[in-house]
């Protein structure tokens, strides 16, 4: 009904970058710096090696989950099943590592990737909003994880070494898990810049119709975004299983909110098209520093959930591009 919903032109300065865009681009970094400074006043040794190591260790699974979610959010969708997939991955690792060894380490992320392919395929071909499909997927994989684990934590009884290095190994005193996650974020950013279709997912979020009508395989792009999200959730599962020496059917579930919060507070617009893994990295750092900082100034961890909730809503309110939303549902 074109007459009833006139598409509003995006009001922007001649250069194409508005003041608001600029602020949003720099804002997360400022928040991070201010947070770090604030925590330093309470904990002068906050930037010591031991403290940073702990910080990065707790950041690694959140960052991996958040990078995965970034791909989907760039296309303007969301995958609500990602944290559950990471839980399922820990269960599968704990079950399979003793018998399969390295095979399990390879197989589990591939299966996690396939869960994303499944979600993405349903979204792309049935043309159903991703939050609904992934909500269903969330239930599906929760049930599978609970069934396979009989709803209990499974200790990794043998071959822990196959994934143990993820937690134990240090480079310059810093945990390899976080360093690898950061490296991945950087590599993806580079790929986005140098590939001739590097901004395909961004364009999905900005102008999917124009992309399709220029002959681009938009369905494949959408499935790719979900597949990458699944893959990174699987990798997060590896890090979690490694740090907990076990698999559990809800091990990753509590990371859902912090990971989504990391994506949006980093400046990735949930309307899609704006953002990237480096923004997500900043967002993940903010979330973990915030967590530590709350502790430092003596706030009860019970308030953590409230803060995640408020951060998600606040960041989305600030970054959402309302001119591209027709009817908000």
């Amino acid at each position: 009904m074109a007459i009833l919903t006139p598409t509003r032109p995006r009001q922007a300065a001649a250069s194409g970058v508005t003041v608001k865009d600029r602020i949003i681009a720099v804002f997360p970094l400022l928040v991070l710096i201010v947070l770090v400074l604030l925590v330093l006043t309470q904990q002068p040794n906050f930037l010591s090696l031991a403290s940073v190591r702990g910080l990065l260790e707790s950041m690694a699974p959140i960052l991996l989950l958040a990078i995965g979610q970034t791909f989907v959010i760039l296309t303007g969708g969301i995958d609500l099943s990602f944290a559950v997939v990471s839980s399922l991955s820990t269960v599968l690792l704990a079950l399979w590592l003793p018998d399969m060894g390295v095979g399990a380490l390879i197989l589990v992320p591939i299966l996690a990737c396939l869960t994303g392919v499944l979600t993405g395929t349903v979204v792309a071909f049935a043309q159903i909003p991703s939050f609904i499909v992934s909500l269903g997927a969330m239930g599906l994989w929760t049930g599978v994880a609970l069934t396979l684990s009989s709803a209990s934590t499974i200790r990794i009884s043998a071959n822990y070494d196959v994934i143990g290095w993820v937690t134990d190994m240090r480079i310059a005193g810093l945990p390899v898990s976080a360093l690898l996650a950061i490296l991945l974020a950087i590599l993806i950013s580079v790929a986005i810049r140098v590939l001739n279709r590097g901004r395909a997912l961004h364009t999905m979020g900005l102008a999917e119709n124009a992309l399709l009508m220029s002959g681009n395989p938009t369905r494949a792009y959408r499935i790719l975004a979900f597949a990458l999200c699944g893959l990174f959730s699987g990798l997060a599962g590896v890090v979690l299983a490694s740090s907990q020496y076990s698999g559990g059917p809800s091990l990753g579930d509590t990371l859902m909110l912090p990971a989504i919060a990391a994506v949006v507070i980093g400046g990735n617009a949930i309307t899609g098209g704006v953002g990237g893994p480096l923004k997500t990295l900043v967002g993940a750092l903010i979330i973990v520093v915030l967590r530590v900082g709350l502790n430092a100034i003596g706030i009860d961890p019970a308030y953590e959930q409230i803060i995640y909730g408020a951060v998600i809503i606040g960041a989305v309110v600030l970054t959402i591009d309302r001119s591209r939303l027709g009817i908000v549902k």
Binding site: T7, R10, G16, N196, R197, R199, H202, T203, L206, A207, N209, A210, L211, M213, S214, G215, N216, G273, V274, R324
Partner: peptide, 22 residues
């Protein structure tokens, strides 16, 4: 429907030119 199916709003002029065949 130029504004929806023709141009990719939010991308630069250059990116639009190479949208179909880079």
């Amino acid at each position: 429907e130029r504004r929806i199916e023709g141009i990719a709003q939010g991308l630069s002029v250059q990116e639009n030119i190479f949208l179909a065949d880079p």
